[in-house]
């Protein structure tokens, strides 16, 4: 009659908590651990792409492939760290940083026109033509004072997205 949560000691929980800047409570971490073990069906210590995609609600998400690249092969500690951006306790800066990372596929600290276009392609699919997508993005960039050639850094993202209307919160169920 083993219980998965009993495998986490207080010490482990505190370590994970520290790793994610205390954005999750201890109870939430226990819940996340149960969930992690549930998703990690073969018990390999990380959740494979296939295991992530077995959650239909995730598989149908337009950004799922992009997110998979960020969460692939993470152990529990890193998994919690990625999710910490969605905690109500995370700062706006942390949330924007996460969004920035989703855009910045080559991790060079700059988001180019191509990268923005590619996220927009994921979001709109076949319902906007490639040509129109480019036009829209170029126009909106120019209106905001950038050009097609300029690449955006994190501080630009903070400036653009950094007001309180950013809603990016996920509640961890505790039972």
């Amino acid at each position: 009659m083993g219980n998965t949560s009993s495998m986490l000691t207080q010490y482990d929980i505190e370590e994970v908590q520290e790793h994610c800047n205390n954005t999750f409570s201890q109870q939430e971490i226990v819940s996340l651990y149960e969930r992690f073990c549930q998703l990690d069906r073969n018990g390999s210590g990380f959740i494979s792409q296939d295991e992530f995609l077995s959650v239909p609600e995730f598989a149908v998400n337009p950004l799922s492939q992009r997110l998979l690249r960020m969460v692939d092969g993470l152990n529990f500690k890193e998994f919690v760290a990625v999710l910490s951006a969605f905690s109500p306790r995370a700062t706006l800066q942390q949330k924007v940083e996460f969004i920035f990372k989703v855009y910045d596929t080559d991790c060079n600290g700059k988001v180019t026109f191509i990268e923005m276009l590619s996220v927009l392609r994921d979001l709109t699919g076949q319902f906007i033509s490639e040509e129109q997508r480019e036009q829209v993005l170029a126009r909106v960039l120019e209106e905001a004072g950038y050009t097609k050639e300029s690449s955006l850094v994190l501080s630009d993202f903070v400036k653009i997205l950094g007001n309180s209307s950013l809603k990016m919160e996920v509640e961890v169920p505790i039972d």
Partner: peptide, 11 residues
């Protein structure tokens, strides 16, 4: 255009 937070939250 850049605010992808609703989609990310869903995921």
């Amino acid at each position: 255009l850049l605010d992808i937070s609703p989609t990310l939250s869903e995921a």
